[in-house]
Design a protein around this nucleic acid. Structure first.
Length: 237
DNA sequence: GGCCAGGTCAAAG
DNA sequence: CTTTGACATGGC
C-alpha cells in the first residue's frame, strides 16, 4: 500500500512538477489563509487576504485583535462564512498572543504532537487546518489527508473508505520525515482532485485519474507493481 | 439555476 | 459513533 501511494506521487510529480505550495509571504499569512480557505475557493480567500494586507492587518497576529469585529467581517465577506471566519481568526490570534506573546517562533518551538493538540483546541482549527499549519508554516513532516486525497486513494483502489487520521498515518508512513514531498503531495492531490475527482461521480474517462490508478497498480513500465483484479476509477463504485 | 469550493462545529439520531 | 445542517460568497 505504501508503494502504491509512492507511485501515485511519482506519477503526479512527473506529470505536473512542483506546485509551489503554500503561496504565502510568511508563516502567519499562511495560517490566516488556511482558515480563510476553509470550504471556500482559494481565489476568494485571496481576496480576503488582500483586504487584510491592504489594511496592514496581516503582519502580526495582534493586529487582528486591534480592529473591530465589524471591520474585520467586512474584509472577509468576499470569502463567504465571514462571521465564523472573523471569529476563528480572532481566536487564533488570541491563542498566539496569549500563549506565546504573539511570537510564532516560540510557538513553532513546541514539539509536533503537542503543538498539534494545542492547535486543535483553538476554535475553528480542525484536523486539516492544523496539519496544513504544521506542514507548511512549521515545516513538520505531517501529512494533510483532505477530502480530495481520500477520494483519489479510494477511487484508485489503494484504500477503502478511510477516515482522516488513518489516511494521514498512511501518507506519513509512505514519506516519513519528508517535508518537501508531503508538501507537494498535498498540493498535487488538490490539483488532480479539482480536475477529475470531484464529489459527484467523476467523469474521468480520459482524465489523469485513470493513469493514476494504473500507477497505483504498478502497470506500465515500472516493475514489481501490484497486479491483479482491482477497482479503478472507471469501474469502481 | 445548480453545484462546488484547499472545513469546522454543534446538535441530533 | 455517524449523520446532518449552518455558515455565505463567487465562479463555472
Amino acid at each position: 500500500m505504501l508503494g502504491e501511494v509512492r507511485r501515485i506521487f511519482e506519477a503526479l510529480w512527473t506529470g505536473y512538477g512542483p506546485q509551489g505550495w503554500w503561496p504565502a509571504e510568511h508563516p502567519w499569512e499562511m495560517m490566516v489563509g488556511a482558515v480563510l480557505t476553509q470550504g471556500t475557493a482559494w481565489r476568494n480567500a485571496v481576496r480576503c487576504l488582500e483586504n487584510l494586507s491592504a489594511g496592514r492587518l496581516l503582519d502580526h497576529p495582534a493586529q487582528l485583535l486591534d480592529v473591530s469585529v465589524h471591520c474585520l467581517e467586512e474584509m472577509l465577506k468576499p470569502g463567504g462564512f465571514w462571521r465564523v471566519k472573523a471569529r476563528r481568526l480572532r481566536a487564533l490570534s488570541r491563542f498566539i498572543v496569549d500563549r506565546w506573546e504573539g511570537d510564532l517562533d516560540r510557538m513553532f518551538a513546541v514539539p509536533t504532537a503537542l503543538l498539534r493538540r494545542k492547535l486543535l483546541s483553538v476554535d475553528g482549527i480542525g484536523p486539516e487546518t492544523a496539519d496544513c499549519i504544521l506542514l507548511y508554516a512549521a515545516r513538520r513532516p505531517v501529512a494533510v489527508a483532505d477530502a480530495y486525497t481520500r477520494r483519489i486513494l479510494q477511487r484508485c483502489g489503494v484504500t477503502g473508505e478511510l477516515g482522516y487520521e488513518a489516511t494521514r498515518r498512511l501518507l506519513e508512513a509512505a514519506f516519513p520525515g519528508e517535508v518537501e514531498k508531503l508538501q507537494e503531495l498535498h498540493a498535487l492531490m488538490v490539483r488532480v482532485g479539482k480536475e477529475c475527482c470531484r464529489k459527484r461521480r467523476p467523469r474521468c474517462g480520459a482524465c489523469l485519474l485513470e493513469s493514476l490508478c494504473e500507477a497505483a497498480a504498478g502497470t506500465g513500465p515500472s516493475p514489481g507493481g501490484v497486479r491483479g483484479p482491482r477497482r479503478n476509477c472507471l469501474r469502481g463504485g
